[in-house]
Amino acid sequence: MPTLQEIALKTDGADARIVSGHRMCSGCGIGPLIKTVLAASDKPVIVLNATGCLEVTTSVYPFTAWNTPWMHLTFENAAAVAAGVESAYRSLKRRGKIDSEVNILAVGGDGGTYDIGFQALSGALERKHKFMYLVYDNEGYMNTGNQRSGATPFGASTTTVPAGKVSNGKPQWRKNLVEIVAAHRIPYVGQAAVHNTLDLYKKAQKGFNADGPAVLAVLQPCTTNWSFDPALTMQYSKLAVETNFWPLYEIENGVVHVNTKPSNRKPIEEFLKGQTRFRHLFKPGNEHVIVEMQKMIDDEWARLLKLEESGIQF
């Protein structure tokens, strides 16, 4: 079992695969998220990064925060680039040009994953390249100032679907990426949250060690565009789990396992309050939106437990 001490040691000093001097916003959870995931690999990691917050803040020439082989190509193709790297790795290994072992990590935000990068991801999973795809999910295009994505939750106000006199923000529920990628019959899919370091680390380990493609989806509360005090990033992550808004679960070889079952799930208002994108929901007359949201969360949670209980494999 890993300990917080072991993880801390791996994320500091010469062993750190990502270092200080990056330009993420103060309090951004992507930092702890990516350093924890990278620490979970017992082999060198090659990172293929989609355009997004992580990419732009870590690679402004001539400064790079990466202490591991890293590449950015464009927005929608991190999984395809990873597929190319993995194919090169297998080819060069077979031909005796290299002998080292590596892990390959593709990483993107929700925009680069749920939306524009979805086809490349699906293709790479279907072809069973051995790599892990990490999505840090801040529920919209946060790098460019809070535009709607397929991961934006119901009721959230974004700059492209703002709340207004006749709008309560996004009218659709979010895409269920975890189940969609699990339908590719890949060996490992995990859903984690940035505040739960040990759970995140263990899931990243499983993903790296899986015998085939793995996907890790991690909620990443955005201090800038969800607009909360940067000190509260971990608190919002925790509340997302405690309200069942973002359950911690995994699908290992098709079998669903729910890692954390809050004994007393908190009402969704606990998560919503303090976030500018949900502020309109607390205006008189909009109570029904929160009621609807609560029902959807409870229904989804009940469904997830049933999936687990049934033992039916994905």
Binding site: A8, S20, M24, S26, G31, P32, T197
Partner: peptide
Amino acid sequence: IHCMICVNYCPDMAIPVTK
């Protein structure tokens, strides 16, 4: 208490550790 929570949470990798 050197629990490492702050270290692992630090977004800027700005809390060094040692053995």
